[in-house]
């Protein structure tokens, strides 16, 4: 049984309970009063909008629409601008709930395949934790030469690289992109400690979630 099927079976008819237990800040979902200020304040809800804007997602969770919510590209539209958080009259941490839902769907392996922000998030985090610091050159190369599933795609890379040529040259000229980062670049000294610490953190988080389930 997949991780997704296991969780669906455990929580049977209560997707709200599942979200409260398993999703970061999920316990806030029931506080939404459906005013829609979040959706009206979201910069990416306008061109062209979310499949289901935040207040709809909240109602769908309460209505038990498990699959529709977790497989939706909606949460991946978040730019982390925090406008919804500061305007929400009931002070729901909406940005974090959207991040939490996206992360949960990603963990269960049901988030939309090929979703570009899902792919970029993975690329970014793995880039940052590899040495403890972001390597911007490798991040850009990874972005343009890997498809959304993380596979190398030379054709796509060359095409997108050409489109980005002027931007890259401008940054090179301004000394804000360093070609020598390819040989390693900036990094933390105690990478071993960082990796051990993160491994432990993942274990502890899984343990906490399992206790709740």
């Amino acid at each position: 049984m997949s991780a997704n099927q296991q969780m669906a079976a455990k929580y049977k008819n209560s997707f709200l309970k599942e979200v409260e237990d398993q999703v970061e800040m999920g316990e806030w979902v029931k506080m939404c009063m459906q005013c829609g200020v979040c959706s009206g304040s979201c910069p990416t809800n306008f061109h062209p909008g979310w499949e289901h804007p935040p207040q709809e997602i909240f109602m769908m969770i309460r209505a038990g629409k498990r699959e529709e919510v977790l497989t939706s590209p909606s949460m991946w539209m978040c730019t982390s601008c925090y406008n919804c958080i500061v305007r929400c009259p009931r002070k729901l941490p909406i940005t974090h709930i959207m991040h939490g839902l996206a992360n949960y769907a990603h963990r269960l392996g049901v988030a939309p395949k090929g979703q570009p922000t899902r792919a970029f998030s993975k690329l970014f985090w793995n880039n940052a934790i590899a040495t403890g610091r972001v390597n911007e050159l490798k991040l850009s190369i990874g972005l343009y030469f890997k498809d959304a599933e993380g596979k190398i795609n030379i054709g796509q890379g060359i095409k997108q690289g050409l489109a980005m040529q002027k931007v890259a040259l401008g940054l090179l000229k301004a000394k804000r992109l360093n070609p020598f980062e390819i040989f390693g670049g900036h990094k933390c000294k105690d990478q071993k400690g960082i990796h051990a610490m993160l491994k432990k953190a993942r274990e502890l988080e899984e343990k906490r979630k399992a206790i709740k389930a």
Partner: peptide, 17 residues
């Protein structure tokens, strides 16, 4: 010092990491 994870790390990172 190390990277803060930025906002965009959310999809892969989880909370405690």
């Amino acid at each position: 010092w190390n990277c803060c994870g930025a906002s965009i790390g959310y999809g892969e990172a989880g909370e405690l990491p």
